[in-house]
């Protein structure tokens, strides 16, 4: 073909190399001490949760009348509670609950929220209005209050708590997804896809969702922290993880009865919650820096 030769671009040796998202993430993690610290805390947290049976010195449920409300000692590093259960072991097992809640609810909420937000943002009109009002309604309640309300209706229990936290988180994701979708929908490449003849569902999955994924993922990492905190709050209020199962929230609640005898269960569990929540927040910031093209380019 005669055309191709004449129109050829020069061979471009200067084409910029492809930056790798993973190597950038690695760079981001280890270039700042605070994120490195956060990363380490999260790794330890996950490790403890996974290997809880191997790490815990005692059965977290084993009661003993002989060891009620002990102060920390060589046998029980954080002392014992009013049923004589080892607080350290309960904390180690409690991390499992926190991890599961902390991961499952934000992921579920992200999925539901993204679907709602993208549908509202992409189709607009009456669909958008209905979904947006619904979201506004949910947002009007503080998430903890909302969670308590739903828990009061459904009762406690594992799946109910997950449902509660998920519902509490959906509006936030839906809002972000809707706003991002509105922005992406204006991009010429979406119009280009329509012009090419691509079907609407394909446009949404191929051209919209990948381009709104970054803020959603960032929100998710940030809300892992909130979910852990919310689960602790609910358990503290007695509508989260049900006794005798351990969770950081109900360790604090049980500890309250003996606050002046031994503050160590509260200090220990409170410290664990603070560390993990803070770490996930710092990680969320790092992930945002990596995914945000404005900052990374």
């Amino acid at each position: 073909m005669a055309v191709s030769i004449e129109h050829s671009e020069l061979p471009s040796p200067s084409l910029a190399p492809e930056p790798r998202a993973l190597s950038r993430l690695g760079y981001e993690l280890f270039s700042r001490t605070s994120t490195m610290f956060a990363f380490a805390v999260v790794v330890i947290f996950v490790f403890v949760a996974v290997f809880a049976p191997l790490l815990a010195p005692y059965d977290p449920l084993a009661q003993s009348i002989l060891k009620i409300n002990r102060l920390p000692s060589a046998d029980n590093w954080l002392g014992t509670d009013q049923f004589g259960r080892d607080v350290l072991s309960r904390m180690i097992y409690g991390s499992r609950n926190s991890l599961i809640f902390g991961l499952i609810s934000p992921v579920l909420a992200a999925i539901c929220g993204t679907v709602l937000g993208v549908v509202a943002g992409y189709f607009g009109g009456i669909i958008d209005r209905i979904i947006s009002r619904l979201i506004d309604l949910l947002l009007a309640f503080p998430e903890l209050l909302l969670a308590i309300m739903i828990a009061a209706v459904l009762g406690g229990g594992f799946w109910n708590v997950i449902a509660v936290i998920t519902v509490a988180f959906v509006p936030g994701f839906a809002r972000v997804a809707r706003a991002s979708t509105l922005a992406v929908k204006q991009e010429p490449y979406v119009e280009a896809a329509i012009a090419v003849g691509v079907r609407t569902p394909v446009i949404i999955f191929r051209h919209v969702i990948p381009n709104i994924a970054a803020p959603i993922v960032v929100l998710m990492t940030l809300w892992v922290a909130s979910a852990i905190r919310l689960e602790a709050s609910l358990s503290f209020l007695g509508i989260g993880t049900q006794p005798p199962n351990p969770s950081w929230g109900n360790i604090i609640r049980d500890g309250l009865n003996n606050l002046f005898g031994s503050p160590w269960p509260i200090i220990g569990a409170g410290f664990a919650i603070t560390c993990v929540v803070l770490s996930f927040n710092l990680l969320g910031d790092a992930v945002r820096d990596v995914l945000d093209p404005e900052i990374s380019e």
Binding site: E187, P188, Y189, E191, A192, A195, V196, H207
Partner: peptide, 17 residues
């Protein structure tokens, strides 16, 4: 649309990044 296509103004925005 198989017979009708379009070329866009903005070469930066019209390609999915």
């Amino acid at each position: 649309r198989r017979h009708l296509q379009m070329i866009f103004q903005d070469p930066y925005g019209s390609l999915s990044p």
